[in-house]
Write a protein that binds this DNA or RNA. Structure first.
Ligand code: FES
Ligand code: FES
Lengths: 146, 146
DNA sequence: ACAATGTCGACTGAATTAGTCGTGAATACC
DNA sequence: GGTATTCACGACTAATTCAGTCGACATTGT
């Protein structure tokens, strides 16, 4: 039932990019270090995100990765679906072919949960996540200074 | 992000028992056949459910498995947790050790989703599932007769 | 005694996940 | 043009989890 590391890492990386929005490309190595992601693995994730149209990459010295569109326009739902494939807790929720229902009789519960989840994820933008993290850092600093 | 077959199969099996509540033990082979579960695998699931206190089993001829408590008192949440372990989509939601938060910054979203999910699952009893399935069968019959 | 049934644990095969590595391609800079 | 920097892509591997099988054993009704 766990999200795979792809989803977790991928979102972390995107938050990193969002926090550097407008500052030019961010390099893989930097992201990997800051977010504790194996760099060679992050490579794959960035490739996937690029193909999905979320990041743009530039090669050569001074190159790196940046958001392909504003952080406000990227929602967690689409991001995670690009990284993980479907988030459905049961296959039948995606396929939705009739006939399997008779066997199982629990789809309705999961359907509701799934719909709720998607709604919630769609409501959170990458910008909101980045902002939330900034907020969190600020209060953390305050706490340290007590 | 999928529920494993353990969860799916296990719940199917429990629904089966619920539908035969008060009719004496139901045999593994019957359940396996009706619910399309490999019998030798179902064995493990029943063992797990027995250890968790959801089913009682009797050996010998005429033996089988029955609910250890009324279907009304069994909720989907506890059932699934017995079968799957934690349902948390991220490990940090269970461990909740501080320090990992600074890295990631997406827990709050998942925490909400997770809480919601647990609430919903806790609100559904095995009795409700069984009843829902009966209902479904009835309308299916009606549809056939058009 | 014997047949029906559940109990338990060891084992296996398949699939998925989580990476690593090497080679190549674009680009900036001198 | 040469070189250093950085991304691009695919082949490969290791580790883990999932899904299931099997066989020997225990219990109980007849
Ligand atoms: S087959 Fe659809 S929920 Fe189990
Ligand atoms: S580490 Fe907690 S959500 Fe990623």
């Amino acid at each position: 039932m766990l999200l795979s590391t792809k989803g977790d890492y991928g979102v972390r990386a995107m938050i990193d990019l969002a926090k550097h929005e407008g500052e030019g490309p961010v390099q893989r190595a930097e992201i990997a270090k800051r977010r504790q992601i194996p760099e060679s693995y992050l490579d794959h994730l960035l490739a996937q995100l690029r193909r999905a149209g979320f990041v743009r990459s530039v090669r050569g010295p001074g190159g790196g990765h940046l958001l392909a569109k504003p952080a406000e326009e990227i929602c967690l739902l689409h991001l995670l679906e690009a990284l993980e494939g479907s988030l459905a807790p049961l296959q039948c929720l995606d396929n939705h072919e009739p006939g399997s229902e008779a066997i199982c009789g629990q789809e309705w519960v999961w359907q509701e949960i799934y719909d709720d989840m998607r709604r919630k994820l769609a409501a959170v933008s990458l910008a909101a996540l980045a902002e939330h993290e900034r907020e969190h850092e600020r209060t953390a600093v305050v706490n340290y200074s007590i």
